[in-house]
Design a protein around this nucleic acid. Structure first.
Lengths: 166, 166
DNA sequence: GGGTTAATGCAAACATTGTTGCGTTAGACT
DNA sequence: AGTCTAACGCAACAATGTTTGCATTAACCC
């Protein structure tokens, strides 16, 4: 299928060269596809990358279930960290960051929606709001993914959650 | 001066079009400079943008002085927030994010150094480390600047500091 | 001043990227 | 099967971006 070949090519190239250095002819060649097809679908490289970024980041995956917010958040954060530990996904997120603020391209909005669902679904904990989850769980993870990717490890999720709760 | 004209042109264009859609000929034209000069200095657009991002973000400005870490951090955070409330600076930061992870281009490393200096210089507070300042002050600010710029206001700095200390 | 070096402008070749019209294929529906 | 539509490939073309060699300027250092 054409689209999945393109998707793979984009991911590889963004990881190899950074989102700013990926061009449509490059993607087309690697995907074994005619550049025209890519141009017609997206118009230019940055909308293509952003589209694929949000596509990839929002699989309809199930959220952790349960009552204990602390456990829920730890599992959820850990899954996000594992996801972005893949350099390909990290690179795609950087591409998403570049086009954020532009038009309506925010590849993380679904993560924020997830945070809201978790906080609502669990037994309420005084002082734990969606905003604080964003600021103290999501933001540190995303910051590290983008700027200091080597600092991601399996201790991060429990630590951030602990720092939020205690 | 050539360099400052280029710097201004890059900032304007990145804010107008997003970092991914800024080309060297565009910058050269707006700066009233020959494209050749830009090519020779930086080679390509993304290293140029990243270079200017770090340049702009690291003026040799003085850090807040004092003994009380809480006050220091609040002032420091507030200054960062005010800086990035300018859409031009926010756009440039997004450009820096795009090329982070690539080689050694991390336009925020000096902010982290500053955090270290503040924590060291002030009277020590148990449990407040550089890492926690990064995770719970810098990261939320940067996250908001990049993805939800409208959410920056003058209440953010004190709130983040309070959440870190209490 | 004379000499050296680095930065810049200019113009021309060159390479890459983006666009368009048209023909072909593939799938869906009747 | 026949028809319709959307997606794709192809090739020619147009526009843009990049490199190069050379001349000019400006700053710096004897």
């Amino acid at each position: 299928m054409v689209l999945s070949a393109i998707k793979t090519a984009v991911e590889e190239l963004v990881a190899e060269r950074g989102s700013e250095r990926v061009t449509i002819p490059m993607v087309a060649e690697r995907a074994g596809v005619n550049p025209t097809s890519v141009y017609r679908r997206w118009g230019d490289a940055s909308t293509m990358i952003n589209d694929i970024a949000t596509y990839r980041l929002d699989p309809g995956r199930p959220l952790p279930k349960g009552d204990d917010l602390r456990t829920l958040l730890t599992e959820w954060a850990d899954e996000i960290i594992r996801h972005y530990s893949d350099p390909v996904h990290a690179a795609i997120l950087r591409g998403g960051a570049a086009s954020a603020g532009q038009s309506q391209s925010d590849c993380l909005r679904n993560r924020r929606a997830e945070a809201g669902m978790l906080v609502q679904q669990a037994a309420p904990v005084p002082g734990i709001t969606v905003e604080r989850v964003i600021d103290h769980i999501v933001a540190p993870i995303v910051y590290r993914v983008i700027f200091i990717p080597d600092s991601l490890d399996e201790t991060l999720a429990p630590r951030l959650v602990a720092e939020l709760f205690d």
